[in-house]
Design a protein around this nucleic acid. Structure first.
Lengths: 228, 228
DNA sequence: CCAATAGTGTCTATCAGACACTATGCG
DNA sequence: CGCATAGTGTCTGATAGACACTATTGG
């Protein structure tokens, strides 16, 4: 006794995957190979399969289209986009569960199976580019979420791989926020917050005085927060 | 050329509707009348219809099942629950887009059309009650979101109708957080934050010194935040 | 007057931000 | 040495929290 006007939908998982490259925030975009919106740039993503949750589907698509494995990335649900006209390219309504993925700058993008082409695009260029469906909105929401979360969580360390210096962590904040931070106060704040970073005892040498190396600590939230 | 193993799903909108009654945080629960999980207590909600977005469906269900109109409530997306086994009562997979709804203590619950029975239940009792599907999880997430948002947003005013005193606003914080706040410091903080509340010039008389009345201001976020 | 509630004054410990200064490497 | 980068010291203004105190009503 199914109500006849109940919606039957396909469910997609789309990902705003962010990383830092050369001091600038980049987002992964793919050139669509599927029939719908073919040839347009879009966020990586795809349909949930039988037996998959949205998060599992997001992780699978990220691996297939961008070459990012589950361990290399922090996935967090961003929101669900369900406007009736958000996708007019398919024969059925499609609702999309969007995820935010933060990755360290390890991998080059991979020309995956589903997507014709994948590449990291600077965020300020990507927001001006024409993207398929409602992906411009999802991208803006994802970047804004990342900016907000840097304030009161330790996710900034997700942009860094293994050991890092306080300067590198500060560069993450400066790139995501688009603002300069005072190096001295940032150093004190970060090292003075228990669980944010853990000193390894190692040093990294370069130009200038060697910098102490740290790894991500166990704390998840920042109290008090860092201010933009 | 549809991929055969692509998921086809029903989409539900479920609502964690919170209000304050007698100084305690309450959530709206309904006794299910539909075949699936019939007779169990659950969050209000229901399936998206053709042409509806999740938010529109949430607003409709809230009106039908709880008697809360769109203007009386603040709706905010909470998250989407898509685990394959979250709902084993239906013949198709169901994913649920959950919403948080904050309402002033105006209406009694309405025994609506879909739900057999609806009532406001104290949150601390509701979290211990057996609820259908994964609604215990959704309820916990909703309450935690409300608690967190009081800190850095002005949504506390959504629990109050029209004009209110600073004491009433403080009572909202104390009920949601389950903690006492210093009346003097709270007063200064709230009235000193531009856009949080606007004085009306009116007074409310009761036992003790009359209290100035305020309405909700235009500010959305609190900077700096109130701390729990 | 007393009880009750609203609202202000004031002190202190803490902290963010500014910025001068010291430390330690490289070429 | 001189430059670059890392990291510390120190001052100041703002603020959260504690709590004493004043203000204004009803009974």
């Amino acid at each position: 006794m199914t109500t006849p006007d109940r919606l039957i939908a396909w469910v997609a998982a789309d990902i705003v995957a962010l990383t830092l490259r050369g001091g600038a925030l980049h987002v992964a975009l793919v050139k669509r190979k599927a029939a719908a919106a073919r040839g347009q740039w879009a966020l990586p993503g795809g349909f949930l399969l039988q037996g998959e949750s949205a998060e599992v589907a997001a992780a699978r698509e990220l691996e297939e289209e961008v070459g990012l494995g589950r361990a290399e990335v922090r996935l967090e649900q961003l929101g669900t986009y369900s406007a009736p006209k958000r996708d007019t390219e398919h024969s059925r309504r499609v609702i999309s569960v969007a995820y935010l993925a933060l990755a360290a700058n390890l991998p080059e993008t991979v020309a995956g199976t589903d997507a014709g082409e994948a590449s990291w695009v600077p965020v300020d260029k990507a927001v001006k580019r024409r993207l398929a469906f409602d992906h411009p909105q999802i991208l803006r929401d994802g970047v804004e979420r990342a900016r907000a979360k840097l304030e009161y969580s330790t996710i900034a360390t997700s942009f860094l791989d293994g050991e890092f210096t306080i300067s590198e962590l500060r560069a993450v904040y400066e790139a995501v926020w688009g603002a300069r931070l005072d190096a001295a106060n940032f150093h004190r704040k970060v090292t003075g917050t228990p669980g944010f970073v853990e000193a390894t005892g190692e040093m990294r040498r370069g130009r200038g005085r060697p910098a102490a190396l740290f790894t991500a600590g166990s704390a998840q939230s920042l109290n008090p927060p860092l201010t933009r």
